[in-house]
Nucleic acid binder design. Structure first.
Lengths: 156, 156
DNA sequence: CGCAGATCGTTTGACAGCAGATGATTTTTG
DNA sequence: CAAAAATCATCTGCTGTCAAACGATCTGCG
C-alpha cells in the first residue's frame, strides 16, 4: 500500500467518462485531431502536404485559379496559401503567372509534372481514408458524412 | 464581360464540392474547428477557459489529483496543464499542495470558490451545446456521439 | 548506503494558424 | 484625367500546441 494516490486515481478513471458522455464538442475535437494527425503522417509519407494535395486537385478539376479563389474555395487562409503555392512551385508542380486581365492576381496553373504527381497521390487517398475510418462501417461513414454536412450547413 | 476570370471561377464553384463528397477527414476537421471556435467564445464569455472548466469538473468529481493525472485523463498536454493550473490558482479556484507521499507531484485541490464557479459555468454548458449543434436533432446528436465514440475506440 | 533509471512539473524552442499592416495594381468616383 | 477606395499577394507578429530538455525527486538494484 505504498503507492496510494496515483493508483487509486487511476483505478477510478479511464479517460474521465463524463466527457465522452456529455460533451459532444470535445469528442468531435478529439476525433478530428486523431484523423488530422493520421492525414498529416499519410501526407508526409506521400511527400505531399494536405493543402498542396487539395490545391493540385482543385487546379486539375477547374483549371487555373487565383490564389484568392483557391483560398476561399478550399478554406485555407490566404497567408498560408502563399507558402503552399511556394512549395508547389518549387517542386515544379505548379506555375505562377500574373493574370493578364488583373495583374494583381496570379493565374496558378498545374503543370504536367503536377498532374502526374496528383494521380500518384490520389490513388492512395482512399486507402488512407479506409485506414483512418476502419472503426466505422461504410454505412456509418455515410451517416457521419451526412451529419457533418448538416453541421457545416450544406448550402451555406 | 469585363470581369472574366474571377466571376467565371466563382460561378462554377461553391466550396469545391468534391471535398465535402469525398474527404470525410476534412469535413471532420472543419466541423471540429467550427465547434471549437464556438466553445472558445462561449468560454471567453463565461470567463473560464475550456481546459480550466474541465479541470474543475474533474477535481470536483474525483477529488484531488496530480497534474499528471489531470493531463492524462483530460488529454491535455502536461506543458499546457501547467498554465491552466496557474490560471486557476491565481483565480483562487484551486490550491496546489505538494503531495506528501511523492513530493515531485502536486495534489491539486478545488476550493469552495472554484466549486461555486464550476456550478455557475456548468449550467450554461447545455445551452452552449444546444446552440453549437442546433443543426442536428437530438437523435442525430446521439448518432454522432456513437459514431465518434467508435472512431475514438470506446474502450481503448 | 550509493548510483542508475524513471517520473513530475516546468521551461524552452519549433511550428501551424490567424489578424492586421504593407506594397503593388486595379477600379471607382469626382 | 486624377485622387480615393478596393483588391491581391505578401509579410509580420501573436497565440496555442506540441516535442524535447532540464532540475528535482523517487524507486530499484547492487
Amino acid at each position: 500500500m505504498a503507492t496510494t494516490t496515483r493508483s487509486a486515481e487511476r483505478a477510478r478513471l479511464t479517460y474521465f467518462p463524463q466527457l465522452a458522455a456529455e460533451r459532444l464538442d470535445i469528442a468531435l475535437c478529439r476525433a478530428s485531431a486523431a484523423v488530422a494527425r493520421a492525414a498529416d503522417t499519410h501526407a508526409a509519407e506521400e511527400g505531399l502536404g494536405v493543402g498542396q494535395h487539395l490545391v493540385l486537385q482543385m487546379l486539375d478539376a477547374v483549371g487555373p485559379c487565383s490564389q484568392q479563389t483557391l483560398s476561399e474555395e478550399l478554406r485555407i487562409d490566404r497567408s498560408v496559401m502563399v507558402s503552399v503555392c511556394d512549395d508547389l512551385e518549387r517542386a515544379g508542380h505548379v506555375r505562377r503567372e500574373r493574370n493578364p486581365r488583373d495583374r494583381r492576381s496570379y493565374a496558378v496553373t498545374i503543370t504536367d509534372t503536377g498532374r502526374r504527381r496528383l494521380v500518384e497521390a490520389q490513388t492512395s487517398v482512399p486507402a488512407f481514408l479506409d485506414d483512418a475510418f476502419h472503426a466505422l462501417t461504410p454505412e456509418e461513414r455515410g451517416q457521419l458524412s451526412t451529419l457533418l454536412g448538416k453541421l457545416l450547413g450544406v448550402g451555406a
